[in-house]
């Protein structure tokens, strides 16, 4: 079976995930968290990854960084297969790929000072000169909008969530990485702070030439930052398309459902009648064929018999559906 991949428009992709499968044992059962996901991220691009809670998007993000080992499939970063790497080689490679977490306060060690936390990657990378480390830490803290002199000597609990996320971004940037996985970086923040952090990420992306994999469940956030968007449902990709195109003309019924669910800030607009009902099925026993068929209004015999592969339904737009909308 040949698997179509949502290819990037041009050039060699920086990240190429191929048929990645991640499963965890859960008692004597298996949770199929990620089942055969293939995607590519071009250099300098922001790929948004959306889906419901528990659809495997965070697992995918962590499997890309090898924080959770995949059962099968490969993750090619700049031509190197990360899944085949071990020990020292992997630790070296990790300096080029960074991660930002959902809970900024939990991702800072409560007992270490900010200066040490931000300098930690440099120490691990083997920068021996303290003066040089201090200079880099000061630069990167200023870049994320914090006053280094006021910040370095203090502990994480003295900062707000937004400030902690700035510190986390500073720590991720201090080694000058090429690729950052942002795992719901603004979900835990106040709405008023979100825009600031998103702007900061955009600014840093331009300044440091970053490529981002932006994981979120909030479509508005994803639309604001992404060049392309991948929609995930129960461990599989439903649709991959350029951001504008996906929001204007969704091809997969699940994408359409998600877009319908965005609340409209107008009391006179009645919410559209929901086309899908119920909870997503359990990833322990996913449905046969198309995983969305149990909630899909267009599902028929073929959907339960045959698993749909990603195919190009419009230029640049890929959907895994037997009956695409567009």
């Amino acid at each position: 079976m040949t698997q179509a991949v949502a290819h990037v428009p041009s050039g060699e992709p920086l990240l190429k995930v191929d048929d990645l499968v991640v499963e965890y044992g859960f008692g004597n059962r298996t949770v199929h968290a990620v089942s055969g996901v293939s995607l590519e991220v071009a250099r300098g691009e922001t790929l948004g990854l959306v889906g419901e809670s528990g659809c495997g998007k965070s697992t995918l993000g962590r499997a890309v960084l090898q924080l959770r080992r995949a059962q099968s499939g490969s993750v090619l970063f700049d031509g190197h297969d990360l899944t085949a790497m071990q020990g020292e080689a992997l630790r070296k490679m990790r300096q080029r790929v960074q991660l930002i977490f959902q809970d900024p306060i939990a991702s800072l060690n409560p007992r270490r000072r900010i200066g040490d936390i931000v300098a930690e990657p440099l120490i691990i990378a083997g920068v021996k000169d303290p003066a040089q480390r201090k200079q880099v830490v000061y630069e990167v803290l200023s870049a994320v909008g914090l006053d280094p002199d006021l910040v370095v000597g203090r502990l994480p609990h003295e900062f707000s969530g937004g400030q902690c996320q700035r510190i986390c971004i500073a720590r991720a940037l201090v080694l000058n990485p090429e690729f950052i996985v942002c795992d719901e970086p603004v979900s835990a923040l106040d709405v008023s702070i979100r825009a600031q952090i998103l702007n900061l990420l955009e600014e840093m992306k331009a300044r440091f030439g970053l490529t981002l994999l932006f994981i979120a469940h909030d479509l508005a956030v994803v639309k604001a930052v992404s060049d392309r968007v991948a929609v995930m449902y129960l461990g599989r990709l439903c649709e991959v398309a350029p951001s504008e195109q996906l929001f204007a003309r969704p091809a997969h019924p699940y994408t359409a459902l998600l877009l319908q669910a965005i609340p409209v800030p107008d009391p006179d607009v009645r919410p559209a009648e929901s086309v899908a009902t119920g909870e997503p099925p359990s990833p322990i026993a996913p449905p046969s064929g198309c995983r969305f068929r149990t909630r899909c209004p267009r599902a028929d015999q073929r959907c339960s018999a045959e698993m749909p592969e990603l195919r190009e339904v419009a230029p640049g737009q890929f959907a895994a559906c037997h009956h695409p909308l567009a």
């Binding site: 990790r94 977490f101 991702s107 060690n109 409560p110 270490r112 990657p121 720590r171 080694l175």
Partner: peptide, 26 residues
Amino acid sequence: RREFVIAAEALGASHARILLRELLPN
């Protein structure tokens, strides 16, 4: 399993470093 330990792992810290620098002080 807290994020700051995973963050240290993602930074390429060795087990000894995670144990001594991240976990031990706590």
